[in-house]
Simulated assay, not measured.
Amino acid sequence: MLSRTAENLFWMARHIERAENTARILDVAHRSSLLPLDMEGTEAYLWYAPLNITGCAGGYEKKYGLARSDAVTHFMALDADNPSSIYSCLRLARENARSVRGAITSEMWEVINATWLEVNRQSRQMSEARYGDFFEWVKERSHLFRGVTHGTILKDIAFNFIRLGTHLERGDNTARILDVKYHILLPSVADVGGAADYYQWGSLLKSVSAFEAYRKIYRDVISPLRVAELFILRDDMPRSLHACMNEVETALSYINGNSAREARRLAGELHAQLHFGRIEDVFGRGLHEFLTDFLDHIDLLGREIRDAYLSRWDRVPRLDMRQVA
Rank of each mutant, 00 (worst) to 15 (best):
I279A: 03
L310W: 09
H297C: 08
A158C: 12
R322E: 15
R315N: 13
S99M: 14
N256C: 09
R226L: 05
E17A: 02
E7H: 03
Y60Q: 00
A325I: 13
S223D: 12
V316N: 10
W137M: 13
A97C: 10
A325C: 08
S84W: 03
E140R: 11
A325R: 15
S123L: 00
H167S: 08
K62P: 07
S311I: 11
R261M: 14
Y87M: 07
S33G: 12
A93C: 01
I184W: 02
N256E: 10
D38Q: 15
L178I: 01
N52D: 12
L319P: 06
T5K: 02
G151N: 04
P317F: 01
G147C: 00
L185T: 05
E140V: 07
P317G: 01
Y48G: 00
E95I: 09
R4P: 06
T22P: 10
V180R: 05
L287R: 01
L164H: 12
G193R: 06
S240Y: 11
L35W: 12
K139R: 13
I305G: 04
Y60P: 01
M1L: 06
R312H: 12
T292V: 15
D320T: 10
S123I: 01
I255A: 09
G193E: 00
L225S: 10
L144N: 11
A80V: 10
A71E: 00
H30L: 03
P317H: 04
V208N: 03
F211K: 11
W137K: 06
V324P: 14
T22H: 08
D133G: 12
N8S: 12
F145H: 03
Y48C: 02
I184Y: 05
G193L: 00
R264L: 09
N120Q: 10
S127H: 08
H74P: 08
A263I: 09
L319V: 01
A23C: 09
S188M: 12
S127N: 15
I298F: 09
I177Q: 01
L300M: 11
R94I: 02
E280W: 10
L233W: 07
S69V: 05
D191L: 02
A308V: 02
G65V: 00
V28W: 06
C89A: 04
V72K: 09
N96C: 13
K139S: 14
L186C: 00
V316R: 13
I112A: 06
R98G: 01
I153F: 06
L185F: 00
Q125C: 02
H143A: 13
S32A: 14
Y87C: 03
D307E: 10
V221A: 13
M1V: 06
L270F: 04
I86E: 06
G302L: 03
A57Y: 05
R265I: 10
L164E: 05
A44G: 04
I16W: 04
L266M: 14
D281Q: 15
D293G: 11
A175I: 14
H150D: 15
E269G: 10
M1T: 07
A272N: 10
I222G: 02
R24C: 12
N258M: 08
R141Y: 13
E118A: 01
L291T: 00
M108Y: 03
S99W: 08
E107I: 00
M12I: 02
A6F: 07
E107R: 03
A103L: 06
R322K: 14
P224C: 04
F161M: 11
Y214V: 04
